[in-house]
Every structure is written in C-alpha cells, then in structure tokens.
Amino acid sequence: MNWQVKYALANFSKEMRSTAEHVDGNVIRIMTHDRPDVLAAITDVETVNRETAVQYREQTEGLDFLCGYRKECVWEGEAIRYLEDNRIGWGSFGTLVSAVLDGNANTATHKTYKFSDRLLRQYGPVMRVDREFDRVHRVTLRSRAEFRIGMIAAYEPTADEVRSLWERFGGVDIAWNINPNGTPQPEASAAGRELGCEVMKWDELKDRLSKA
C-alpha cells in the first residue's frame, strides 16, 4: 500500500462519521451514514496535469474524487477543467473529507482556493478569468486590462512563499493573500517588490481591479 493511501486511511479512521477501505492501488472507498459512498484516488504527484487526470479517470470506473495528498500539490488548469467536465471532484485531503460529509464529492473543488476563485469570477469589473493553475488566474477586465494573479493561502505569507510562487509559476502582477485573517510579513512585501509584484489582500485587490 502506498504511503499516501496509508495516511488517508489512518486519517479517516479518526473521523467518526466515515469509514474507509482500500480498494486497489491508490483507490479507496469511503462510506458515510446517509451519504453516498465515495470512490477516491489518492495521488502523491506534485503536479496534477491533464494526462494524470485522464489516467486516473480511465483506470478507475466510477471515480468520484481525485485527491492530491501532498500539501504542495499543484493542479494545472487543463486538469481542473477535465475533471470538472467529467463530474469528478478534485483537491486536497481536507477537501475530500469535507466533500464526503457534504455528499458532494463529484462537484467539490479544492477548498483552499474555492472561495477566492468565486470572488474573482463574480467581481463586477472582471470580464474573463483563465485559471492557469489552481492558484494562478489570468484576469481580463472590462477595461481590457489584464492581470496575472497568484494566490497565497498562508496566514502570514513569508518572503519565501512569495519567491516560491514566482519560481514555480512564473511572474505574477499580484500575489494575493487569500487568507481573510492573514497579514503578509513585511519581508514578503519586500520580496514582491524585488521581483516586480505587489503582495495584497482582497480589499486592495478589489480597489486595484476597479480602477484599472
């Protein structure tokens, strides 16, 4: 049994409302009273691209959810679109646990970025959102101005988190600290300035988009 499946099963064993069992390979089944059973694949890849998503869907009949177990797992935009088009939920282990209890595993999306993704799409000045990665969005405004926005979920983003976002995903115009209770460290803002991006919270971002 792979390490990530062991961790998933060990963590479900603590969850009193659900039980989980190993099916085969990276696939587990989760049973919850009064909720549909969930067939989930638990992957240890660092990046889920379209090819990975297709492979899991084709290998697992009836797959409900694809879980990237590593905290740093990155989901490419094409993989996200493929999974959503095929009614397969996707995201972190925490997303899977919530989806199982909510009974919406087939439509669940990574809970870390779900609210921020929706905020951008529903904000008036925004005309188009191209989700390049789970946490990187290219936004086109009605004014035709474009911004590439990277999301940082940490409570207190550090300089390293800003640099790592830039190194992993390429340049962004704005590093958006999406944790509503968070405050970027001064070193994070300084790292952003060195690289050529601004580190900000939603209120500042909203203001910037409305004036661009």
Partner: peptide, 15 residues
C-alpha cells in the same frame, strides 16, 4: 506528507 514553512529569522522573531 511534509508541509514545510520557511521563515527568515526576522519573520520568526516578529511572529
């Protein structure tokens, strides 16, 4: 399943 946070000494001192 490592989840690693990297801080500069000044960041750790402040927080």
């Amino acid at each position: 399943p490592l989840h690693i946070l990297y801080m500069q000494p000044s960041e750790e001192r402040r927080t």
